[in-house]
Design a protein around this nucleic acid. Structure first.
Length: 934
DNA sequence: GACATCACG
DNA sequence: GACGTACGTGATGTCC
């Protein structure tokens, strides 16, 4: 094999292997190999990091040479100089030790050079190679954030912090040390390092060290001229501890002449051997990663055994009992700092906030609970009020024994924002919005609610009580007795601190246990990708949209409310006149009596409660013969618009922001769709002219416009792809009117002779197909005889036989597996599939619909997740999502650019995970309000 | 709190 | 052969 000589134009990547391993070990729960219980969490994380590294290595700056460098053994030449070097290092965790050789194997499996040398630290090898690369005229990037390596930066050598996605150059080093790389060892020699047990000069930290070095030029001059230092204590230290400081310098100085038995040329980038790589991953039983890499390499994924070692399963059972009396109430900084230490030790923490209500945009923070391992949790009360005080104003006084809110946040903020510490929550969107309002940006996160949704959508809800009952066999302390109900209900800040501690700390304890239960299961359920690409990344995106809100013009709504009230009064009088008595028009029961008893109209009883049904479709039929039903329909429309929209929306305008802030439920819909609440901004009227005008109240800030981009026929396009209907695909490719095309195919009418009525019928059929069509349903929708509707359906299946195959296959799959899947791997469980009677029909249709609706939901989720970065350079904001539509607010002079970018993201949202046979098309609209934009 | 009704995709 | 149905949501008002 001929090797390219390393030289100008070459780019060497050096990966700090030990850093990768420790980061992987602390970021993941203690995973074990299913078949024999071998600990493999760190190996798994390590492989994922390598994989992500390889994936990201394309483009102009790709490396030509690469190696992963490891530490070997614990005794190095530095121990010979100073026997206490790294003496206070904790022993390697028991479950990490057996994983060390596996990480080397993993590196070989990826066909990346893997180097280590007895007696030397990885840092020395890295230093030697970096210097060699520089000398040969090439460049070098050290993938690590270790400050000990910063002395190497400069002149073609850079560092890259993969975690923070940040390059570190000479300026970056200066930021960290206050000196440029060539003086870093001098500063380190003075400042010492408690982690590595480098003594340094007592009482001198990095800041002081940099100051001294910058003043005297370098360490040697400083020590020689130490007598000139003005501060007596500092002078004394430098004089007395000269030997210790010089030793420290030798300890931190990297050895750039490590003898190596390989050359730079040996590190040339090589493609992995698919067989070897996949065999290793399969041996580790990494199901998701094996499959993903197999797909990428175009190779077949090896099968992975499903057998479970009996002893391996037994140890996973959680035996620690819940005990609310063991929870700690943290009342001062000293106690809190102990918790911070524990959090840093573990690398993760379960967090829960207690607040004065449920609206994150309004409520106040009352307390915070933390948990680092099952049974070990605390509550930090912060703003509890003293309700027990006798004087009248007692309830406004802060209760005794709480640390100041700001002090607690100052201590917790670095932890909550630390990229190396995982914050675990149940519905973290809520807590991160609360924290955000107090200036804390929580990241990175895991969310047990989203994990449950990824694994169990369709099986049950994902609230904490449900999950705890189901998976921990423990019923949480109910909140009701603490807060009371009705008029006498209190807010959490009025709950006595001891009761609050038991309740709040338990929530964090439960959350941590759920996480430990769920995290290893994500892999087994094959939904890690769903969780990591479609669920978790949505949290910050939605949090930002919700907090930003949308401006609503109260005046417009108020005027409409008045107009509606007037019209309703008129209609009500007419209705009473026509019926001959005054009654509550809003009562379906009273209306039914009048229509079907007093007036004797046709259209009998229905409903389980024995009441007459007076739904819009029934009244619509009656309206052809009588005036009263029409009036009632009109009244109902106005009543709906007024109560649900023009009145209610006003109450949702936030007094501080003047905007309306909805809340999206990520797990609300089983299919993966979002749901919008408080208020629901996904059902603002649009279908009728009067209703549509409500959208005129949704407006941009002055100088801005509202921008609406929506997917055209996304569900039908996805159906065409999934069911493989060539005629439909072709029609979309040709940009045809899809409903007209369907009508033409079905009724043999040429497109140029199409009538709106025939097209309308075809449209109903197309939608019916998406919903799991039935003759009855179509008949009712089109108001045609059932036999005729059945004829349409038969004909449709004749013309598009692929549709029937899709439906049959989907139902069969659901029956066999108990779930169906979207194109992106989201699973929707169908537990009702095995039931008998009418429920089976529902389950069937839901199973047919779920992959279509769910895939469309996945697509727009992907677009939303990409959007913030895509529009970061623009002054545009994403405000709302309405299933297939995204609404933006943008200054008028950036409209076209925003449309281009957002459309590009939306139309390409399925790439590269899924290659659709059908192009996705996005329509755009803009205007001075939502009615104009849509 | 169940139910009916109706707003959206 | 009868059953009793379009899929997915949330908010409101009535009535018990």
């Amino acid at each position: 094999m001929s090797k390219t000589e390393f030289g100008k134009g070459c780019h060497l990547h050096l990966i700090d292997g030990s850093a990768f391993i420790f980061r992987a070990y602390h970021a993941l729960p203690p995973l074990t190999r299913k078949s024999d219980g071998l600990p493999i969490g760190a190996v798994s994380g390590f492989c994922n990091m390598l994989q992500r590294y390889v994936e990201g290595n394309h483009g102009p700056d790709a490396p030509t040479h690469v190696a992963v460098i490891f530490d070997k053994g614990s005794h190095t030449f530095r121990n010979d100089m100073y026997d206490l070097y790294k003496a206070n290092r904790e022993a390697m965790p028991e479950d990490l030790r057996p994983q060390m050789p596996l990480t080397r194997e993993a590196t070989h499996a990826f066909n990346i050079a893997c180097e280590e040398k007895e007696g030397y630290e990885a840092d020395d090898i890295i230093a030697t190679l970096a210097v060699q690369a520089r000398a040969a005229g090439g460049r070098c990037t050290i993938i690590s954030s270790d400050k000990d390596l910063m002395q190497l930066v400069g002149d073609g050598v850079e560092m890259y912090d993969a975690m923070k996605n940040k390059r570190i150059d000479r300026d970056g080093v200066f930021e960290k040390f206050g000196v440029f790389p060539e003086r870093v060892v001098d500063v380190q020699a003075l400042a010492g390092d408690s982690v590595d047990n480098v003594p340094g000069a007592p009482g001198i930290g990095i800041k002081t060290a940099a100051l001294l070095i910058n003043e005297y030029g370098d360490l040697e001059s400083l020590l020689d001229r130490a007598e000139e230092i003005k501060q007596p204590k500092r002078r004394q230290t430098l004089v007395d501890k000269r030997d210790q400081i010089e030793l420290s310098k030798r300890l931190v100085q990297l050895d750039e002449k490590t003898p190596l038995d390989f050359t730079l040329e040996d590190l040339e980038v090589r493609d992995p051997d698919p067989d070897k790589l996949l065999a290793f991953l399969a041996e580790m039983e990494f199901r998701t990663l094996t499959k993903r890499i197999a797909d990428q390499l175009g190779a077949e994924a090896p099968t992975i055994t499903d057998k479970v070692a009996p002893e391996a399963e037994a140890v996973t059972v959680e035996d620690i009992p819940f005990d609310a009396t063991k929870y700690e109430c943290v009342r001062d900084a000293v106690a809190l700092l102990k918790w911070v230490d524990q959090i840093r030790e573990h690398g993760w923490v379960a967090v829960d906030t207690e607040t004065t209500g449920l609206n994150e945009m309004i409520v106040d923070l009352v307390g915070i609970s933390l948990c680092v391992r099952a049974g070990t949790a605390c509550y930090i009360p912060l703003t509890h009020r003293d309700g027990s005080a006798d004087d009248l104003f007692g309830s406004d006084e802060l209760a005794e024994g709480q640390m100041p809110l700001n002090e607690a946040l100052d201590i917790l903020k670095p932890v909550l924002e630390d990229p190396a510490i995982l914050k675990i929550g149940q519905n973290m969107k809520y807590d991160s919005k609360i924290f955000k309002r107090y200036g804390v940006s929580v990241a990175p996160i895991d969310d047990t609610m989203l994990m449950s949704s990824a694994m169990h959508a369709g099986e049950h809800g994902h609230g904490m009580d449900t999950l705890s009952d189901r998976y921990l066999n423990h019923t949480p302390i109910p909140i009701k007795p603490l807060l009371g109900s009705g008029k006498s209900a209190i807010t959490f800040d009025k709950v006595p601190i001891d009761e609050a501690t038991a309740y709040a700390a338990e929530d964090a304890d439960i959350t941590l246990r759920l996480w430990q239960h769920f995290k290893p299961q994500l892999h087994r359920a094959q939904v890690t990708t769903v969780y990591e690409t479609l669920e978790r990344p949505l949290v910050p995106v939605l949090a930002e949209m919700e907090m930003h809100g949308i401006k609503v013009d109260r005046e417009v709504l108020s005027r409409m409310s008045n107009a509606f009230a007037q019209k309703m009064a008129g209609l009500e009088a007419e209705i009473h006149e026509l019926s001959g008595e005054t009654f509550n028009v809003g009562s379906p029961a009273q209306l039914g009596e009048i229509l079907f008893e007093k007036m004797g109209l046709e259209g009998g009883k229905k409903g389980k409660t024995g009441k007459y049904s007076t739904g819009a479709d029934i009244l619509e039929d009656l309206a052809t013969e009588h005036e009263l039903p029409r009036r009632v329909l009109d009244w109902r429309q106005l009543s709906k618009l007024k109560s649900t929209y023009t009145d209610a929306l006003q109450t949702h305008i936030n007094p501080d922001t003047g905007r309306v802030h909805t809340s999206y439920s990520i797990t609300g819909a089983t299919t993966g769709r979002l749901a919008s609440t408080d208020p629901n901004l996904q059902n603002i009227p649009v279908r009728t002219e009067e209703g549509r005008r409500i959208r005129e109240a949704f407006i941009p800030e002055p100088g801005n416009v509202l921008l609406s981009l929506d997917y055209s026929q996304i569900e039908l396009r996805i159906l065409a792809h999934i069911a493989g209907i060539d005629a439909l695909k072709q029609a979309f490719a040709d940009g045809l009117d899809i409903h007209a095309m369907t009508a033409s195919e079905m009724f043999d009418v040429p497109l140029d002779e199409m009538t709106s009525d025939i097209r309308r019928q075809a449209k109903a059929i197309n939608f019916g197909v998406i919903y799991g069509i039935s003759g009855f349903g179509l008949a009712r929708n089109l108001r045609i005889p059932r036999s005729e509707a059945q004829g349409f359906i038969d004909r449709y299946f004749e013309r598009f036989p692929g549709i029937r195959t899709y439906m049959d296959d989907t139902v069969a799959f659901a029956k066999e597996h108990g779930y169906v899947q979207t194109l992106f791997g989201r699973k929707i469980h169908t537990p009702e599939m095995s039931s008998k009677g009418p429920r089976a029909g529902f389950a069937k249709r839901a199973a047919i619909n779920a992959p279509i609706q769910g895939t469309a939901a996945d697509v727009i989720r992907r677009a939303m997740i990409q959007m913030p970065a895509a529009i970061a350079h623009l002054p545009a904001r994403m405000l709302l999502q309405v299933h297939d539509e995204l609404l933006f607010e943008v200054p008028a002079d950036h409209v076209d650019e925003t449309i281009d970018v957002a459309r590009c993201v939306m139309e390409g949202a399925s790439d590269p995970a899924v290659k659709l046979d059908v192009k996705l098309t996005v329509d755009a609209g803009q205007g001075a309000n939502w009615a104009e934009a849509h």
